[in-house]
Design a protein around this nucleic acid. Structure first.
Lengths: 194, 194
DNA sequence: GTCTATATCTCGATAGAC
DNA sequence: GTCTATCGAGATATAGAC
């Protein structure tokens, strides 16, 4: 248990060091030596946990994706109406992105890199399950336009990223930020409703 | 004139080789030696045109951006109504993206990389001028929601990228593709109108 | 599991002939 | 302007002591 805990810590240290540096300098711009240094471990240790650099890049992605999904899922209560669920999910998605900028940025950085092709379609599908369920339900309840789930999923995803981009480009007061998020939600809703 | 033409050709060869390889293997994954080989020039020649690799990365971005803007601008005629202009611009934006997948992909790959920070805000603004004008006009004419131009610009941009992603993820017949684009336009419109 | 030391390799960039 | 040849830096990954 204790040795396992130590084990876990180094792993996590390497992951967060990698996240910080990848976001700032890109995959290429960050040598494993710098990651190890930032994590406070030796170079060789990094390769003990991740046989090759790409393994680290991919593990970091899966790690973040899972964290995001766990967070989003934890925020919707079964008792809520479908509309409430959708709104809750959307709002929390945005707030998660704002509270975890590096992680959210990394997800997209990863998507736009050759590494993404190494994630199997099954894994991608699995990682979208929590969204897919809600959208499917929404269509059935005639709350959303009767369009392919994949299509709505993609559109919502890019909408969220757009809002993230806008909100992080400029410094906003909390009140302004809230207004932007509300406006965005209204817009999303107008776009999606039948 | 003739020597200038040769000059231009090598430049272009290097740029298109770089585009092809950057999109497939990433900035880091493509050594200058491979770019030179793909372009059919010697390694040293590449460095004659671009002193350092980053110069090439940036030049390629600006080149593509300008081409896209020239294309978009060329498609709107002064006589058209504002609504027609907006629709024309949107549709052609999508079609340009589909006809120039590598270029469109590269734009976003570049945006999500540390290189983007090397583009000055003035240049960025300049490169958005053709869109900004239309959006400003649209707001004034009460065709679009009275929100910050920057905000609408960002949202539209990510909407377009979302559609691009969806359309390139799967193979569609021409008819299906047209339907997706039309649906997307309707959705954009619902989202933006006051 | 973790460290130090280092092998091996590749890449970006330069020098200099043509 | 274009090429060939090459240098030097810095990268990933490994070996082996602890």
């Amino acid at each position: 248990m204790i040795s396992q805990s130590n084990h876990q810590d180094k792993r996590k240290d390497i992951l967060s060091a990698a996240l910080k540096l990848f976001v700032e300098f890109g995959f290429h711009g960050t040598p494993t030596s710098k990651i190890a240094a930032e994590a406070g471990v030796a170079n060789g240790t990094l390769f003990h946990y991740y046989k090759v650099k790409d393994d680290l890049v991919i593990a970091l992605y899966n790690d973040i994706k899972n964290e995001l999904n766990r967070y989003i899922t934890s925020k919707t209560s079964c008792g809520d109406s479908l509309e409430t669920k959708v709104k809750t999910m959307f709002i929390h998605f945005i707030y998660w992105a704002l509270d975890n900028r590096e992680k959210f940025y990394y997800i997209h950085q990863f998507h736009l890199s050759p590494h993404f092709s190494k994630i199997s379609p099954e894994t991608i599908h699995e990682q979208s399950l929590c969204h897919i369920g809600l959208i499917t339900e929404g269509i059935r309840a005639k709350l959303l336009k009767p369009l392919p789930v994949e299509f709505l999923l993609t559109i919502i995803g890019s909408h969220v990223f757009g809002i993230y981009q806008y909100l992080t480009k400029t410094q906003f007061s909390e009140k302004e930020q809230k207004k932007v998020i509300n406006d965005s939600y209204e817009m999303l809703w107008c776009m999606m409703k039948p």
